[in-house]
Amino acid sequence: MPKVIFRLFSTFVVFVGVFILIQQYLKPDSFGKYGHYRANAINDAKLIPLQYKGEKECITCHQDIYDLKYSDLHDAVSCESCHIPKILATDACKTNPPKVEGSNEFCGQCHAINAGRLKKGPPQLDFKDHYEKQNCIDCHNSHAPWELKK
């Protein structure tokens, strides 16, 4: 074999060898365990802190409100649909409950009239005809909407 080819070929082999060596070294540990990805990334995805705790968590303190809600038409609506969790710890939730404004606009997110909403769904209102100047919760109990306040 001519010297040129030998020298170039060995340079090539050394290059590929070093490349593979580096590859072995820099490949993440769990890579390729289940597929072409870092298997540990599955666990990483589980580690995000919870914001929405679910109704079960709310019931531990607010069983009464839950029962009230369950007795009326908002039974299927989860607590956190309206009470967006701004506080992480449940303890803080006791002292500083996440308030809901109960304005026409807020309730209108579900109840404003819209041709895209099915008639059999939640009642739809044109707020111009329905006590425009007042907030919904001035008359309605938000947990039991058909329980009207005086």
Binding site: Q51, Y52, G54, A76, V77, S78, E80, S81, G121, P122
Partner: peptide
């Protein structure tokens, strides 16, 4: 979360 809060 989206399923949790969906009212319908």
């Amino acid at each position: 979360a989206c399923v949790e809060v969906c009212p319908t």
